[in-house]
């Protein structure tokens, strides 16, 4: 019975989520045309935005309905709430298993593309924005939970590297779904890269970013929707399996080496975690 009573105590949270989700779904998918391209706005984006606006830590007035207790309870529910979505993804991967085997080499090798964070963002951090050791934590990965653990373990989160990874984590949490929806819908309409490749790239090891990315792609290319979902889902599953090892054994040592070359006078800190 305790199990049920605990849930009833959180009625404000679940009611708020139900109302937010229904409003977001009723608004539906909207798009803004930009020349040849288009940016899609998806219900999941509105759901996040309305949630943030009803969050007492963002809007003080929201505290009359949503209190700190609801905020704390919401955090572990994010993972539970993504589960039916992950299950549906699995059931779309299954029937496409032959296509996935055909695309196997691309699917496996594109995991290396997650090092693109270093290739694109590290030079900008170090040479354009003249940032310090924050660059290391900020650019070695997409800064999701497993990557935070790596930085916390090696440098401590109060170090500059920790500031870097936490900053990107928070920006990713707040704007990641929007950024992925914009990138995916624009690239889908530009017709430069194979849609299968764009779908595989959606699997970055974050459920909500993948949702936004695949949602935008499959709305832009509805006739390929099943393939897109299967490729993205398979790639995301691979990233769950490989992401942490790529970060720990490849990306982080590589970024440390790059930084030591770029800033010989300001060596990477090796102190014990705080």
């Amino acid at each position: 019975m305790h199990v049920l009573i605990d849930a009833v105590k959180l009625w404000r949270l679940h009611l708020a989520v139900a109302v937010i989700a229904i409003v977001a779904q009723l608004i539906g998918i909207r798009q803004i045309s930009l020349g040849n391209g288009a940016i899609l706005f998806l219900p999941l984006l509105y759901a996040f935005l309305i949630g943030v606006l009803l969050n007492p830590n963002v809007m003080a007035k929201a505290a009359v309905f949503i209190r700190q207790r609801e905020v704390r309870a919401a955090s572990p529910l994010i993972v539970v709430a993504i589960m039916p979505f992950i299950a549906k993804f699995g059931t779309t991967i299954g029937p496409a298993v032959e296509d996935l085997v055909d695309a196997g080499p691309a699917l496996l090798l594109q995991e290396i593309g997650n090092l693109g964070t270093v290739a694109l963002a590290f030079p900008i951090a170090v040479w354009v924005l003249r940032m310090g050791r924050e660059s290391i934590g900020a650019t070695f990965s997409v800064a999701r939970e497993p990557n935070i653990a790596i930085i916390a373990d090696r440098y401590g989160l109060k170090s500059p590297e920790g500031t870097g990874v936490m900053g990107v984590y928070v920006v990713g949490t707040l704007f990641g779904t929007l950024i992925f929806a914009v990138m995916a819908s624009m690239l889908a309409t530009f017709d430069l890269l194979d849609p299968q490749a764009l779908a595989m790239a959606c699997g970055v090891g974050s459920g909500s970013m993948m949702a936004s990315c695949t949602g935008a792609l499959s709305e832009a290319l509805p006739e390929m929707s099943d393939t897109i979902v299967a490729m993205a889902g398979a790639s995301n599953l691979l990233t769950y399996a490989t992401g942490m090892y790529l970060g720990l054994f490849v990306a982080l040592p590589f970024v440390e080496w790059l930084y030591s070359k770029a800033r010989p006078a300001n060596p990477v800190s090796k102190e014990a975690p705080a």
Partner: peptide
Amino acid sequence: FLALSVPCLAYAGLA
């Protein structure tokens, strides 16, 4: 599948 992701983001916004 897209509708399935909506409650998750609502919890995330409130969290």
